[in-house]
């Protein structure tokens, strides 16, 4: 690893000031992506600004909805009793990221800001309609996560902005969720396809009040399958309709072929996993 400066600001204002004052600065959260990039010379920061010294930036707050500090570790998200109780799909998604060693370091904010289309936290939070709160040089600013990603490994964050908090809306608590990740192994994989589904449906009638479907690793950024959602919203979830929606989701995916999988296979996986995910939610016994 090349040499660099290291700064550990004690508050957000100092962090933003350090961002503006230094050459080629990078924000350091868990470092599980950044340090690998530095070791392989993919990125060459001259200065790392470690956010872990900022008080309160790693807190999980619950007041019907959730407010997750950007530096909350993925492991804390995974094991939080409140998250497991209220929005277990988030905990389940967190459990699929890397290893326990990685989850003890990786942060929910870092996972989003790295901007990988396959980021495990991105798909599930996108399906949860979450909002991001950024600290900037000119005060706080809020935006939907759906506005955040701009392409592979890039986000809208400006040089004077720091992601501070992820806000999960109250109403998500009434949805049932699922996170399906397909990779060759059962652990330690970057997903070939990631699917997150949040569904509010009447189990007895199968009527869908609202559904959110997010897809990871099948487009330049994590996306919502809006056409599929539109087909299902305010409709009865018949096998035929689910199949139709799954195909619509597959059409919305624009994956690439690479050494991990072909584009065609990824599209097939989207179709099958969306259908499988909806079925699994409908057939799950304990409501979430």
């Amino acid at each position: 690893m090349k040499r660099f400066d290291y700064i550990r600001p004690g508050n957000m204002a100092d962090a933003i000031a350090a961002l503006q004052a230094n050459d080629e600065p990078y924000l350091l959260a868990g470092g599980t992506d950044l340090l690998i990039g530095m070791k392989t010379n993919a990125v060459k920061p001259k200065c790392l600004i470690d956010l872990k010294g900022i008080p309160g930036i790693d807190c999980i707050e619950y007041d019907n909805g959730f407010k997750l500090g950007a530096l909350t570790t993925v492991r804390d998200v995974e094991v939080s009793p409140l998250i497991r109780e209220k929005i277990p799909a988030l905990s389940e998604a967190a459990a699929t990221l890397g290893s326990i060693q990685i989850r003890n370091r990786a942060t929910i904010g870092g996972n989003l800001c790295h901007g990988s289309p396959a980021a495990d936290m991105a798909a599930i939070l996108l399906a949860m309609n979450c909002e991001l709160q950024m600290a900037t040089g000119n005060g706080a600013k809020t935006m939907g996560l759906d506005q955040f990603f701009t392409g592979p490994n890039s986000t809208v964050l400006n040089r004077n902005e720091v992601l501070a908090q992820i806000i999960i809306p109250k109403e998500i608590g009434q949805f049932k969720g699922i996170y399906l990740k397909h990779g060759p192994r059962k652990a330690m994989d970057i997903g070939i396809v990631n699917i997150a589904i949040l569904l509010d449906a009447d189990v007895s009638s199968g009527f869908c009040n609202q559904i959110m479907i997010a897809l990871g690793a099948v487009a330049p950024r994590p996306i919502r399958a809006k056409k599929a959602e539109a087909l299902l919203n305010a409709n009865r979830l018949t096998p035929e309709l689910i199949q139709e929606a799954a195909e619509a989701a597959s059409d919305e995916a624009t994956p690439i072929s690479d050494f991990r999988a072909s584009a065609g296979y990824r599209k097939d996986l989207v179709k099958n996993l969306v259908a499988k995910g909806i079925d699994q939610i409908l057939n799950s016994k304990d409501p979430s």
Partner: peptide, 16 residues
């Protein structure tokens, strides 16, 4: 070699 690391070269984990 396009997968010269343990995340893309898939050695089995204890779960597999």
């Amino acid at each position: 070699v396009v997968n010269p690391n343990f995340h893309d070269y898939k050695m089995l984990t204890i779960k597999d």
